[in-house]
Write a protein that binds this DNA or RNA. Structure first.
Length: 423
RNA sequence: GGAGAGGUGGCAGAGUGGUAAUGCAGCAGCCUGCUAAGCUGUGCACGGGUAACCGUGUCCUGGGUUCGAAUCCCAGUCUCUCCGCCA
């Protein structure tokens, strides 16, 4: 959530930023927020004055009663009658103004960093880096949705039987490769100084709001109305919410945590022609990195985290490229995002396998996550990144490493898998 | 699922309708020379003010009663204990 004080002080910057993020009526919304907030402050001043008067009379009544001056006390009681009515009205006005301001504020996304390129669609994303793609596939090479059948390692039909479309069953070497990737990613994160966490995979409404999934992604999460809990769409939510309502000592920063979880997404309305196989799922596995940092470091940390993810892709020997997302393609809560995409030779497509984002104070403001540095206090910056999401990594490994007599397992994974080839 | 107990500042812990005691810790200032002690001030949010400072709210949350609620009433929530069920 954007900070009210910032909106009040820099309305033009905010409007410009929101327009870069393609928010319609940005100026209109910002101006009404400023207006409602001014109204809120004026009302509070009035209310405070009314309550102060009422409190002071009440104290006098208390003293008079002690001294046994009953008639004077009764007279003073009369005086508080209309003060109470007035304060009730003002309280209601204040509540309405606060509600209105929050309602407007909550629908505004984060504004992009200066480093974010202008643009409206994914075509406008800046390609920051790309590896050479010198993959030559054998004759008759197959996309992963054929390979998994050929080697019987992932079964979509079985998943449909048990649950439904988009819930695959991993079998045999498929299951083992999956587990190998999870362990490899976690070990690499731990080596890079992240503390491992196993969080709950259901979250309450407060958590979903604090990291920005609510109200923005309301319809995209699986929801249990009995308990009002949501299945996590990403470990970002439980990991970041560990620090909700916390005041962190500045010398404890940066906080670096990692966690493996399954992730659940309804993906309502987003199924299309090129989302076959592992490209889009309702349930998938991911290892997530989260950092909570001092504001002045956050962009250096963004580079550091992205470099970590690039390191994983290099170790897996996968061709990849790095994109700096343009304003129009940025997520709701992000100030800046690097997307990492691997190249799938068999599909001749780039597949997004990681998003590393700096949220600046947007999440911290909702989380009420602050740091204390001596006397200085302020909102932390939060960052997170996938390191990595498994299905598309699995897809590119299967497709790019296929040979006539089987699929070669990348060297770094062989000890984790206990085999070097799927055949 | 049933029954009971409880939720007060960073921590401990009093407080049954009239200014949230007290202790410990941390921080700041003052004072003092002997391995440290003493004194004073220090929660958070919002509002007003250049500032010093002032006001309002805040005793799990939300309502209610009252001139006035940590305290009384209602609802919710969380924690603990016992019983039941159970991987």
């Amino acid at each position: 959530m954007l900070q009210l004080s910032y909106i009040n002080q820099h309305p033009e910057e905010v409007i410009k930023g929101l327009e870069r993020k393609l928010v319609p009526n940005a100026a209109e919304i910002v101006n009404s927020i400023i207006e409602v907030d001014a109204k809120r402050r004026a009302t509070q001043t009035q209310l405070d004055e009314t309550l102060a008067e009422s409190n002071s009379i009440s104290k006098q009544i208390g003293m008079l009663m002690k001294q046994g001056k009953k008639e004077e006390a009764e007279a003073a009681k009369q005086a508080t009658g209309n003060l109470k009515d007035k304060s009730q009205e003002l309280k209601e006005e204040l509540r309405l103004a606060e509600e209105k301001a929050k309602e407007l504020l909550v629908q505004l996304p984060n504004i992009p960093s200066e480093k974010v390129p202008d643009g409206k669609t994914p075509e406008d994303n800046a390609i920051v880096f790309s590896t050479e793609n010198n993959i030559t596939l054998p004759e008759g090479s197959l996309p992963h949705w054929e390979l998994i059948k050929k080697y019987d390692i992932i079964d979509f039909d079985l998943g449909s039987k048990i649950t439904g479309a988009g819930f695959p069953v991993y079998k045999g070497k498929g299951a083992r490769l999956q587990r190998a990737l999870i362990n490899f990613f976690l070990d690499q994160a731990i080596e890079a100084g992240y503390g491992e966490i196993q969080p709950p995979i259901m979250i309450n409404e407060d958590s979903a709001f604090a990291t920005g999934q609510l109200p923005d992604k309301e319809g995209q999460m699986y929801h249990d109305p009995n308990e009002n809990l949501y299945l996590i769409p990403t470990a970002e939510v439980p990991l970041t919410n560990i620090y909700r309502n916390e005041m962190v000592d500045a010398n404890k920063l940066p906080i670096k945590i990692t966690g493996y979880t399954p992730c659940f997404r309804r993906e309502a309305g987003s199924w299309g022609a090129h989302v076959r196989g592992l490209n889009r799922l309702h349930q998938f596995d991911k290892v997530e990195l989260v950092q909570i940092v001092k504001p002045e470091n956050s962009y250096d940390i963004l580079e550091e985290m992205t470099a970590h993810v690039e390191g994983l892709l290099k170790k897996l020997e996968l061709p990849y490229r790095k994109l700096n997302l343009c304003g129009g393609d940025l997520g709701f809560t992000a100030a800046m995002t690097y997307d990492l995409e691997t190249y799938s030779a068999a599909q001749d497509r780039w597949l997004e396998v990681s998003s590393v984002s700096n949220f600046e104070t947007y999440q911290a403001n909702r989380l009420k996550l602050r740091y204390k540095d001596g006397k200085q206090k302020g909102l932390c910056h939060t960052l997170n990144g996938s390191a990595l999401a498994l299905p598309r990594i699995l897809a590119t490994i299967l497709e790019n490493n296929q040979t006539e007599d089987g699929i070669n397992i990348p060297k770094v994974l062989q000890s984790y898998c206990g085999f070097d080839k799927i055949s």
